[in-house]
Amino acid sequence: MTASVPTILVLAGKRDGALDPLADRAGVSHKAVIPVAGKPLISHVLGRIEEAWDDAKIIVSIHDAHVLDHVAIVRRLREAGRLEIVEAQGGLVDSVDAAARTAEWPLLITTGDNALVTVDALHTINAVGDERGADAVIGVVSREAIQAAYPYKQKGFYEFRDVAISNCNLFWLRDRRALAAAEPFRGGGQFAKRKGELRRAFGLMSLIRFRFKMDTLDGTMRRLSRRFGVPMAAYLFEDGRLAIDVDNEESFRATEELMAADANSA
């Protein structure tokens, strides 16, 4: 089966509209353009997308489009007619909704800080929906794989009966109806720290089952599929690096160290 070429949405706005500490340290307004391994952060993401598909439409959601004016790959992709910039909204789901108005389906969503994303991961998440008969797919990585890739001290995990995972900022939606699957992320996705939002999105019984690790990861996906009326699946990647986005000082350091190791081994 040959998967359809997706539209790729890169979420690069400010979380809650606030200045990110890494951006503040670098003297820029958006984390997406902080220098990482000698290039603006978002350049790494766009470079992998360009390698993955030479004809896919790319949408970048950001609060201020002008901050991307100096990013060479953004200019080149815009001049080629492949990249569109849309204004980010107040929340993550609202930003996805706004960007999806000009998208062709399926829609593959990632983030502007997902610097270690790979071509293989992009191709895989795009194919899994058809292979599993799902309308929405979330890419995840196990705690063991992440720790093997980099010895994290701060990273939190979502724990299920069979596995502890972190998401890797890769999401796939088959069509507009599948946007209902984004509802759990309306509060920003930080549900482990926001019990009220988790209860509102998932329901009380699902919250209880999650807190006490009563379900497997696949079991939870089946429960969420019933709740939102959208067939959902989680794909467990083996590459722990995929869960390392540039989110704080530790992950910034991890990303640069791993990129340097790649360069030295090339």
Rank of each mutant, 00 (worst) to 15 (best):
P6D: 08
R15A: 11
L19R: 09
D20F: 03
D24Q: 15
I34C: 05
G38F: 11
K39E: 15
L41T: 02
L41E: 07
I42V: 12
S43H: 05
G47D: 01
R48E: 09
I49F: 00
I49L: 06
I49R: 01
E51M: 08
E51A: 12
E51Y: 04
E51P: 00
D55K: 15
K57D: 08
K57Y: 01
V67P: 01
L68D: 03
H70A: 14
R75K: 11
R78C: 08
E79L: 10
L83C: 01
E84V: 14
E87I: 10
E87Y: 01
A88W: 00
L92E: 02
R101Y: 01
R101H: 06
T102G: 12
E104S: 14
I109Y: 06
L116V: 08
L116G: 00
V117W: 05
V117G: 06
V119G: 01
A121R: 10
T124V: 14
A127E: 15
A134W: 02
A145N: 15
A148M: 08
Y150Q: 07
F157S: 04
Y158E: 12
E159A: 13
R161C: 01
A164K: 09
I165A: 06
C168R: 00
R177T: 12
A178G: 01
A180M: 03
P184V: 14
P184W: 13
G187I: 05
G188A: 04
G188F: 09
G189N: 05
G189H: 02
L198A: 14
M205Y: 11
M205D: 14
R209W: 13
K213T: 13
T216C: 12
D218E: 14
T220H: 08
R222H: 13
F228Q: 05
F228E: 01
P231K: 00
Y235V: 02
F237D: 05
G240S: 11
G240E: 13
N248Q: 04
T255D: 01
E257H: 05
E257R: 08
M259E: 09
D262A: 06
N264W: 08
N264P: 01
